[in-house]
């Protein structure tokens, strides 16, 4: 069954790493009724995890702040927005490059945005230094015919 009306949920949580799992669980539960494939659900979960981790590790590097997560579903389309009011990204284009990280000493892989791009159809990043970052991602689910 595909719901034609748009539905939205949003939440805010403190930037503790323990909340990464919580954010993934909420998104998973919210999208469950669209009946996505296991792979599609894992794609969205991974992308959410990457964006939330970035907000926690980079956005609120030396402090605890609030991370906002909004998820919308409309027909077969899923939109997720993760934003923070943290330090922002100095060079968004560089941040998107594979293996680029500002924290090599912390063993960051530099693959965060690459994973978001690999697993979602669209990824838009809006960032301003000192004011925060917002990542908006979209994915079109390919639900089986007749559902």
């Amino acid at each position: 069954m595909i719901r034609e009306q748009e539905q939205e949920m949003s939440m805010r949580f403190d930037s503790y790493p323990e909340n990464e799992q919580f954010a993934r669980m909420v998104v998973t539960a919210f999208l469950m009724d669209l009946n996505p494939t296991v792979d599609e659900m894992a794609d969205v979960k991974t992308a959410v995890s990457e964006a939330v981790t970035n907000a926690i590790i980079h956005g609120y590097e030396d402090c605890v702040g609030q991370v906002s997560l909004t998820c919308r579903k409309h027909g077969k389309d899923v939109m997720v927005t993760v934003s923070d009011q943290g330090k922002g990204i100095a060079d968004v284009e560089r941040a998107r490059e594979p293996f680029f990280t500002t924290k090599p000493e912390a063993e960051r892989s530099g693959m965060g945005f690459c994973f978001m791009e690999a697993f979602m159809d669209e990824v838009h990043i809006t960032s301003a230094e000192g004011r925060g970052t917002s990542v908006e991602m979209k994915k079109h689910l390919h639900l089986p015919a007749g559902e």
Binding site: R24, A42, K45, T46, S49, E50, T53, A106, E107, R108, S109, G110, M111, G112, C114, F115
Partner: peptide, 12 residues
Amino acid sequence: FMDSSGIGMLIG
């Protein structure tokens, strides 16, 4: 499930 933080840990 594993995200890119897991990759960083494995590379390390």
